[in-house]
């Protein structure tokens, strides 16, 4: 399934909770969650570790808006809104971690 996260991991536990629960599948980071996929962020280790069992995607327009497009962790897949639509379509279901 597709897990959609929209909160910064340093201010909210939604990404942590998702990583605790999800054994496999796709994670898409949107809105303030994009900070989680940047190098040097305190979550970097956890994100890298999760990448062995989960595919992590980032909504690039949200990262660009926040001035961090050059710090994306290698291996995180960049998508635009069309790619967001494709991810939803490709997965059987999706959950927004609000």
């Amino acid at each position: 399934m597709l897990h959609i996260i929209n909160k910064s991991p340093l201010g909210n536990n939604s990404l942590d909770a998702c990583l605790r629960v999800a054994a496999s599948g796709d994670i898409l980071l949107i809105e303030d969650a994009v900070y989680a996929a940047t190098k040097g962020n305190a979550m970097e280790g956890k994100v890298r570790e999760a990448m062995s069992r989960l595919k992590i995607h980032i909504l690039l327009p949200d990262l660009e808006a926040r001035g961090l497009a050059d710090r994306i962790i290698e291996g995180v897949a960049k998508v635009d809104y069309g790619g967001f639509v494709d991810l939803v379509a490709a997965n059987k279901n999706c959950q927004s971690w609000l």
Binding site: M1, V21, G25, K92, N93, C94, Q95, W97, L98
Partner: peptide
């Protein structure tokens, strides 16, 4: 969660 059709939050 995986086995659901619709997940609402």
């Amino acid at each position: 969660m995986d086995e659901q059709d619709v997940v609402l939050s």
